[in-house]
Design a protein around this nucleic acid. Structure first.
Lengths: 157, 157
DNA sequence: CTACTTGCAAATCATTTGCAGATGA
DNA sequence: TCATCTGCAAATGATTTGCAAGTAG
């Protein structure tokens, strides 16, 4: 095996933290304490969240002045750029969800309890691609929300 | 034919102006000069628009102090309530489109020129309903955006 | 070292609200 | 007549920015 044998260029599976570090370094940005804490919190569980919910989880740090609201906003933006988070604007406010290494999906949105239920449909993607082809439109992605009322809220209500 | 013979309860086709008047009266609200002017402008052509674009079309009236920004916002809200307009939040700001008497559709959204191209697919609705049934979710509607780049922008480079 | 970051306070942007005077039914 | 509207100015809420001090590489 030659000396210059190299590993595959694209690592198949880095942790979100590693992936973010890679992204930051590639851009001459720094891996700071704050950015590390935010990524850790964001990827500690799979869920949809907005800036305020994230800020709430980071309350302690904020009260200790080790982290601030603007930094959280700045870092959320970077996580989106890095492809780790997907941002969607839902009834005014921005909502984020994990994107890195997470299968593509759409959402059922319950208007009563504001819950997002994920689902995946190959068929929707096929229709999307067919329609796009008809319009000679180059697809980069899509977003679909089915609005309505979930089982629980219908039972309660 | 009896004296109390009545016309069908639901008129099949009123103009947007008439429909809005009906809506306002049903709620004890008034048909004012301003509301009339706004509906007229909004339905003068089929297009997607945001509050600022509408305000721009109404510049003259605003400079003459016959109409104001808050009134435009208030009336847009009422038009949505009345089912005349559909509101969608697109990258932060609210975008409106005709809803009354207009067939349901989805959008291709060109990220370069920000254009919305409408398309309709029965198949998407069928998939939507099937998925909803699987989740015992009561569908009220849906919204789908296919993001990408349109022909023109691809040609331009 | 020194360029990139941060927290802070203040700015911004779109939208909303309180209120006194104006107006439609 | 008088409850509903309107324009105005000011408030709001989410997000962003300028800047001097702090820190990663």
């Amino acid at each position: 095996m030659p000396d210059n044998f190299s590993l595959p260029k694209v690592q198949v599976k880095l942790s979100p933290e590693e992936r973010f570090t890679q992204f930051l370094q590639k851009r001459g940005k720094r891996v700071t304490q704050q950015r590390r804490l935010i990524v850790e919190q964001v990827f500690s569980h799979h869920d949809h969240f907005d800036a305020d919910e994230l800020l709430e989880h980071l309350q302690e740090l904020i009260q200790r002045r080790e982290l601030s609201r603007p930094t959280v906003y700045r870092t959320l933006g970077e996580l989106v750029e890095a492809g780790l988070l997907r941002k969607m604007s839902l009834s005014g406010r921005s909502v984020y969800e994990h994107d890195y290494g997470y299968p593509s999906h759409d959402h059922l949105f319950c208007q009563v309890c504001n819950t997002l239920i994920e689902f995946h449909s190959d068929q929707i993607e096929r229709v999307r691609d067919r329609v796009a082809r008809q319009h000679d439109f180059h697809v980069l992605g899509h977003r679909m929300f089915v609005t309505g009322i979930c089982t629980e809220c219908r039972k309660r209500g």
